[in-house]
Amino acid sequence: MGIRYYAYAFDADMTERAKADPRSFISDDPLADAWGLPHGAQTAVTNFEQSVPSTEMLNLDKAWPLLQEITKPSATDRRPRPGYRMFEGQATMHGDGWTPWVRALSPTEVIEIAEDLVELLPAVRDAEIAHRDTRYVLDYLNRAVEFVTGVAASNRGFAYLIG
């Protein structure tokens, strides 16, 4: 199935709890949420429409490493873009599969990330950032911008999982 990215919004008053245990804010079956499947289904029919509102959940599928790449530190600037915090992390591989990377971001962090991704969007749209998959990246970056700006506007944070 591969390593995927999912994010779920939480209310500001839950920030400390989310920071302490971000996994508790992630669905027990994010793939089912993303694909409109019943939780735990082994086989099912779906229309592939996300069952959780897009204001509450972001599915970046397998595009997250490309978004990580365009926000990571560059050769000239050793600091990552603020948006990198949203994509940072790797699942830890082991013999039986992998252990997901999970993090929670506070409402304050989300505001900084939203501002950065909004600023980054025209550069990707105008292909100022050279990338072999610009259209693919742009589609998922648009989704990320829509989600994070909505979460920021509602003064909420989010927890994300790469796994």
Score class of each variant (00 low, 15 high):
Ala18Gln: 00
Arg4Asn: 07
Leu60Thr: 09
Lys19Trp: 05
Met93His: 05
Thr108Cys: 02
Leu161Thr: 12
Val45Tyr: 13
Arg81Pro: 01
Pro30Glu: 06
Ala153Tyr: 06
Pro122Leu: 10
Glu56Phe: 02
His131Phe: 10
Ile113Gly: 03
Phe158Trp: 08
Asp126Arg: 06
Ala44Lys: 11
Gln68Leu: 09
Ala127His: 13
Met86Glu: 01
Lys62Phe: 09
Ala159Ile: 05
Trp64Asp: 07
Glu56Arg: 06
Gly150Gln: 02
Gly40Met: 09
Leu121Ala: 13
Ser74Tyr: 04
Ala41Arg: 07
Asp77Glu: 13
Tyr5Thr: 10
Phe25Asp: 04
Thr76Met: 10
Ala44Met: 11
Ser154Gly: 13
Met57Ala: 05
Leu37Met: 15
Pro73Gly: 04
Met86Thr: 01
Val102Ile: 11
Leu60Tyr: 08
Val124Ile: 15
Phe48Ile: 11
Arg23Glu: 15
Arg135Lys: 06
Ala114Ser: 14
Gly97Leu: 05
Gly157Thr: 03
Pro38Gly: 02
Leu58Trp: 06
Thr108Leu: 11
Gln42Ser: 13
Thr149Gln: 08
Leu105His: 06
Ser27Leu: 09
Ala123Met: 14
Ile111Pro: 00
Arg132Asp: 12
Ser24Cys: 05
Val148Lys: 01
Arg85Gly: 01
Asp61Glu: 13
Tyr6His: 13
Met86Ile: 06
Glu115Thr: 13
Gly157Asn: 01
Ala41Pro: 02
Leu37Gln: 09
Asn155Asp: 14
Ile129Asn: 05
Ser154Arg: 14
Val118Ile: 13
Tyr84Trp: 14
His39Pro: 00
Leu117Val: 14
Leu60Met: 12
Phe10Ile: 06
Ala91Arg: 08
Pro73Met: 11
Thr15Glu: 03
Gln90Phe: 13
Lys19Met: 15
Glu88Leu: 11
Leu121Asn: 01
Gly89Pro: 05
Ile70Tyr: 09
Arg143Val: 00
Ala153Phe: 08
Ser154Phe: 07
His131Leu: 09
Val151Arg: 00
Pro80Tyr: 04
Asn47Phe: 12
Ala114Cys: 03
Gly40Thr: 06
Tyr84Asn: 13
Asp96Ser: 06
Ser154Lys: 09
Trp64Gln: 09
Pro107His: 09
Tyr5Met: 05
Pro100Asn: 07
Ala152Val: 07
Arg143Ile: 02
Arg17Ser: 12
Glu56Met: 12
Ile113Trp: 05
Glu109Cys: 03
Trp35Pro: 01
Val52Lys: 04
Pro65Leu: 03
Phe10Ala: 00
His94Cys: 08
Phe147Tyr: 09
Glu128Ser: 00
Glu16Asp: 15
Thr108Arg: 09
Glu56Ile: 07
Phe147Val: 04
Ala20Lys: 05
